[in-house]
Computed example of a mutant assay.
Amino acid sequence: MKITPTSIPDVLLIEPKVFGDARGFFFESFNRQVFREATGLDLDFVQDNHSRSGQGVLRGLHYQVQQPQGKLVRVVRGAVFDVAVDIRQGSATFGQWVGMTLSEENQQQMWVPPGFAHGFLVLSESADVLYKTTDYYAPVHERCIRWDDEALAIGWPLAGRTPLVSDKDARAPGFHAAIATVGT
């Protein structure tokens, strides 16, 4: 397993060892001991989620004000542009974002720590995204930040297209208004 810190050092790019031949491939998508040795993080994942979305769908930027979730994200079909935004007040990277393409071809994963908002844009015809979480989904604590907020200036690879977002995500407040609710 290769671990690469991103421009926000707590967000990690994870590249598993893939064993492939003419028959296909095999890799461990998660091994707690190997992950702990490689990252220094000893995590208890409590929930696995699976999302399928069509091309141009943008989900996010989601977070929980209580029970914040760390997420280990991977794509098993298709490709997405995956984004993490640091919403940890007092952090040296507060308000910064990092994004990377995760796909079935590159088999990379992204570790999004608790205290980050998370979202993704589907780049392929459709995509299946799997992610493990360190805390349970708590709808009463879920919040979101508007995906196109100018304060964040996320470089979504939209190529001039308008993404398809949920009503909830379309109504989301901007970054500064949203972070005022963190911890409440």
Rank of each mutant, 00 (worst) to 15 (best):
Gly95Phe: 05
Gly95Arg: 04
Gln89Arg: 15
Ala79Thr: 11
Val85Ile: 11
Phe94Glu: 06
Gln108Trp: 08
Leu130Tyr: 14
Ser103Gln: 06
Ala138Glu: 14
Met100Trp: 04
Arg59Cys: 06
Val73His: 00
Phe94Ser: 09
Asp135Leu: 00
Gly95Glu: 01
Glu125Tyr: 04
Val73Ser: 00
Phe116Met: 08
Val98Gly: 00
Val80His: 08
Val80Trp: 01
Arg74Lys: 13
Phe116His: 13
Val73Ile: 15
Ala127Asp: 10
Val76Arg: 12
Asp128Pro: 02
Gln96Leu: 09
Val83Ala: 06
Pro114Gly: 06
Ala79His: 09
Gln107Gly: 05
Glu125Trp: 04
Phe116Leu: 07
Ile87Glu: 08
Arg77Gly: 01
Gly60Glu: 05
Val65Ser: 12
Leu61Asn: 05
Met110Glu: 01
Val73Leu: 10
Gly90Ala: 10
Pro114Phe: 00
Ala138Ser: 14
Gly99Arg: 08
Gly78Val: 02
Trp97Ala: 13
Val98Arg: 03
Ser91His: 04
Arg77Ser: 15
Glu125Val: 09
Gly119Met: 07
Val129Phe: 04
Val83Phe: 04
Glu104Gln: 15
Gln66Lys: 15
Thr93Tyr: 13
Arg88Met: 12
Gly78Trp: 01
Ile87Leu: 12
Arg59Lys: 13
Ala92Asn: 07
Ala127Val: 05
Arg88Gln: 15
Phe116Trp: 09
Met100Gln: 14
Asp86Glu: 12
Ala138Gly: 09
Arg74Thr: 12
Thr134Trp: 07
Gly70Met: 07
Tyr63Glu: 04
Thr133His: 04
Met110Gln: 12
Arg74Tyr: 05
Lys71Ala: 10
